[in-house]
Amino acid sequence: MSRHDLTRHAAVRQQQRCIPPLVVDWLLSYGRRDPSSGAVKVRFDRRGRRELAREVGERAVSLMSKYLNAALVVDRDTDRVITVEWLH
C-alpha cells in the first residue's frame, strides 16, 4: 500500500482502476502539479518522466510505462489524495 494519505474514495478508485501504489508514490514525487478547481491535479510530464528515469532507471520506467497516464487529484491544503484516475 502507498505510504501516502489516500481518502477512502481514492483507495477504492486506485484498486478499481488497477493503478499500483508505486505509481501513486511516483506521481507524488515526480509529477507535475496543476491547480484544478480547489484541488491540484498531479500527472507525469516529460520533465517528471526524465527525473523518474534518472532516479529508478530507464528499465523500471519502461516496464511501468502503461501506468504513466495515471493522475491524481490532491487536496491543495492537506496533500491528501482525493482520487486516482486515468488521463484520456
Rank of each mutant, 00 (worst) to 15 (best):
W86F: 04
M64W: 03
G31Q: 00
V40Y: 00
G57K: 07
G38I: 06
Q14V: 07
E85T: 07
A70N: 10
A39D: 14
N69C: 09
C18Y: 08
A70C: 07
V42P: 01
S36R: 12
W86H: 15
L22N: 06
D77M: 10
R13H: 05
H4M: 02
R49N: 07
V73G: 00
R50H: 12
R59Y: 00
Q16T: 09
V40T: 15
A70D: 09
A11D: 15
A71F: 00
R3Q: 13
R8T: 13
Q14S: 11
A10I: 05
Q16K: 11
F44G: 00
V81A: 04
E58A: 13
Y67V: 03
H88K: 11
I19Y: 01
F44K: 02
L87Y: 07
Y67M: 04
V74M: 11
E85N: 02
S37V: 06
S65F: 03
L72K: 05
C18G: 06
L22W: 06
M1H: 11
L52M: 06
L52S: 04
E85C: 09
C18D: 12
V40D: 08
D45V: 03
T7P: 08
D45F: 05
T78D: 03
V61A: 09
M64G: 00
T78W: 04
R8G: 10
